[in-house]
Simulated scan of single mutants.
Amino acid sequence: MNHQSIVSFIWQVADLLRGDYKQHEYGDIILPFTVLRRLDCVLEPTKDKVLAVEKSTQGMSEGVRERQLENVAELPFYNTSRYTMSRLRADPSNIAENLNDYVQKFSKDALDVFEKFDFFNRVDSLAANNLLFQIVDKFCTVDLGPAAVDDAEMGDIYENLLRRFSEMSNETAGEHFSPRDGLKLAVDLLIAGAANDLSQGNKVVRVYDPCAGTGGALSLFDEQVQAYYPNTTVLCYGQELNPATFATCKADIMLRGGGCQTYSLWQHSH
C-alpha cells in the first residue's frame, strides 16, 4: 500500500465509530491506535528475543535493564508483554484486558505517549460499545512496518491523519500544527543565519520550541539541518501544555525514528 492508500484505509477504520462517537472524538481513538500499530510492527522482528532477555534482567537496576532491552530491540523503546496486536485477536472475549496488558508493558517513554492519549479510558469505552475487537482486527490488516513504510513516510501519514481529524473537529487552522511550507521557510532562514558555523562540521546544534504543539517545527528543523549538514548533531527541546497534543508530538517523533537521545520533551503545567 502506498502513502495515500494507508491514509485512506485508516480513515475508513474511523467509520466504525460512526453512531457511537461524535466526529470530533474520532482522532482521539484512531491516532493512538495508529501509533500502536506502527510500534507493534517495528518491534515484531525482535519480539521473541526481547522476551527471552527480559527474563534474565529481573533484579537488575532499572537503568541497566532498560539499556539491555533497548539493545536487544535495536530501538530506543521496547515491549515486554507476550502479546502483539495479532496475538490479541486469538482471545476476543478478553481483548480489553489483554490489550491493556500489552500497552502497559511498553518502556516508559512509549507508555507515556499512551497515557497522555488517555488510551486506557479509550479502550474501556470501545469495549463498552463492542467496538474494541473490530478496531484491533482492522489495524492488524495494515502493514506499518519499516520495510513497507519508512520513518519519514510514517511521520507524513500521521501528520496527514492529524490534519484531517482536526478539520473534522472544526478546529482553528494552526491550533495543533503549522503549515509545513511556512515552517520550512522559517527553518531555512534560521539555518542560513548559521551557515558559516554549521559548515565547519561536527557541530552540536540545540533548538528549543516553547510551544511545541505536535512537534512539526522541531522535526523539520532536525530534518533540514541533517540534509544540509549531515555531520551535525541536532538536539531538540520542546514543551507543550495540552496532554493530547504533547502525546501527538512525542508519538510523531517516535514514528519518524527519533528517540530520547536527540529529543527532550516535557509537558508544561499551569
Rank of each mutant, 00 (worst) to 15 (best):
F9T: 11
A14Q: 02
D15Y: 13
G19M: 02
D20I: 01
E25D: 08
L36R: 10
R37C: 07
K49N: 11
Q58I: 14
G59D: 12
E62C: 06
V64L: 12
R65A: 13
E66C: 08
R67G: 00
N71G: 12
F77Q: 07
Y78K: 12
T84R: 15
M85D: 09
R89V: 13
P92F: 03
S93T: 03
N94P: 08
N98Q: 13
L99F: 03
S107T: 06
S107I: 05
V113T: 06
F120W: 10
D124G: 06
L126Y: 08
A128F: 11
N129W: 01
N129L: 11
L132S: 08
Q134N: 14
T141S: 15
V142M: 10
L144T: 10
P146N: 13
P146V: 12
D150S: 07
D150P: 14
A152E: 14
A152M: 13
D156R: 14
L162Q: 13
N170C: 06
A173W: 03
H176S: 10
F177V: 02
D181L: 05
V187I: 11
D188N: 15
I191V: 14
A192Q: 12
G193I: 08
A194G: 00
Q200F: 01
N202A: 03
Y208S: 06
Y208Q: 04
Y208C: 07
L218N: 09
L218W: 05
S219T: 13
F221W: 05
D222I: 07
E223Q: 15
Q226D: 05
A227G: 00
Y228F: 04
N231S: 15
N231A: 01
V234I: 09
C236F: 00
G238E: 02
T245V: 15
G259Y: 00
Q267E: 14
